[in-house]
Every structure is written in C-alpha cells, then in structure tokens.
Amino acid sequence: MAGQSNPQLSIFTAAEVEFLAEDEQIDIVPNVRMDTLHMICGDYGPFRPQIPVRVPLWLAIALKKRSKCRIQPPDWMSVEKLTQVLEDEREAPREFQPLPFHYVEISRLLFDHARDDITDPYLVRSLLEDIRDVRFHKVESGLETLSGKTHAVKLKNLAAMEVNIVRPFIVRALQCFYKHDNEDLIKQAANELDSQPVASDRVPRRTLRPR
C-alpha cells in the first residue's frame, strides 16, 4: 500500500488514540464509599454508593474491573439516538453527523469492559457498525474527488479513530498530487520527502555539475 513506504505518516497508534479517549468524562454509579481523589488529572469524587459521579473513562473502567461501580453509557449510545444518527447519516451524503470525537474508542471500551451496563448491546453494536460503514463510505467517495487542485479537504465531525485510519492514505495521496502539480517545488520536495539523504529511483535527483 502506498502509505507504507513512509511509516511516519501514521503518527498515532490505535492504542495512543485510545489513551486520549480514556480521558473523556463519563458517569458512574459507585457501590463503594471512597473519598475525593485529588489527582493530577483533576479532582474526582467523593464516591458514595448509588450516587452518580462523573469521572474520566479510565477511572470508570478501573473501578468497573474491580466491580466497584456501574457505568452509565452516555446519551448518544442509546438505541434511540443512534437510530437517529444513522438515519441522518444516510440522508446527508456529504456531511458527517456530530458524534463525540472519540465515539469509536468510547463505545469500544464500554463494550469490552462494561457490556452488562449497556441496554440492548446487540442493537447498539450493530447500529454503531452501520454508522461506521456509512461514514467510511462517505470518506471513500470523497477520496475520488481528490485531485491536484485539492488544497483543502473539509471533514467536519470526522472522529479521532476515523481520522487515524484514513490519514496515511489521504496524506500520501495529497502529497503526491501536490508534488506533481507544483513542478517548481519538485526539487525541494524531493529533498524533503526522503528523510534519509539517499537518492531513490522515483524521486528526481539534483544533477551534479560536471567537473
């Protein structure tokens, strides 16, 4: 694949995107009593049995793993909301519906660690998969419109994990278009494209002055 020749293009690993998503806030209902946690990432708690409290996702999952709480899936993860999103997503062929920036990772983490807290997990999961498919289809058909004249691509509401997946290909494609469309820049781009100062066959090389 085109993106592979330059590993630098996929700058975030999936795990790193997930790490960022774990700082999103979520409501939990603890079943233990615990004082307020004064952490580097903020103050959370106090935790009282049966009283909902908002914490970062990683904390919620850590407590859940120890069976110390129930996680309340966010509003947008309800069958009702997702059905609406899917419908809107299908109706607007050129736009992405607003979903949380980390919706892929959040829903995935909740399915992995708190499946029993999700109502209608099968339906929710299949809705999420349908939404993902529709969105990727839009990205793919959008790719067909890329050309040398493309200076900007608008992808409002595209989510973090989606960005990460399409990044290597799109960036590579746009770079190539840009390079071939700007003849005067080729020399410079050739120097810069190769991070190692090794001349490769495909890249135009500076001709040496005869001695």
Binding site: Q175, L185, A189, N191, E192, D194, S195, P197, R209
Partner: peptide, 29 residues
C-alpha cells in the same frame, strides 16, 4: 576526494544538499 562531506553530495554542489529537512508541505488534519 570531493565526496567526503557529510553535508554535500560533492564539493561541486552549490549548496549543502544532504541535510534532511521536515516536509512542511505535507498535509495535516
């Protein structure tokens, strides 16, 4: 002799042409 610089392909190069630079014309999200 003439090809021993780390910075130039050859001493006859007009400028230091063996220094990797970041591609500022790359695309970002």
């Amino acid at each position: 002799f003439g090809y021993q610089s780390m910075l130039r392909q050859a001493t006859s190069s007009e400028e230091d042409d063996m220094i990797p630079e970041p591609t500022l014309d790359t695309f970002v999200f």
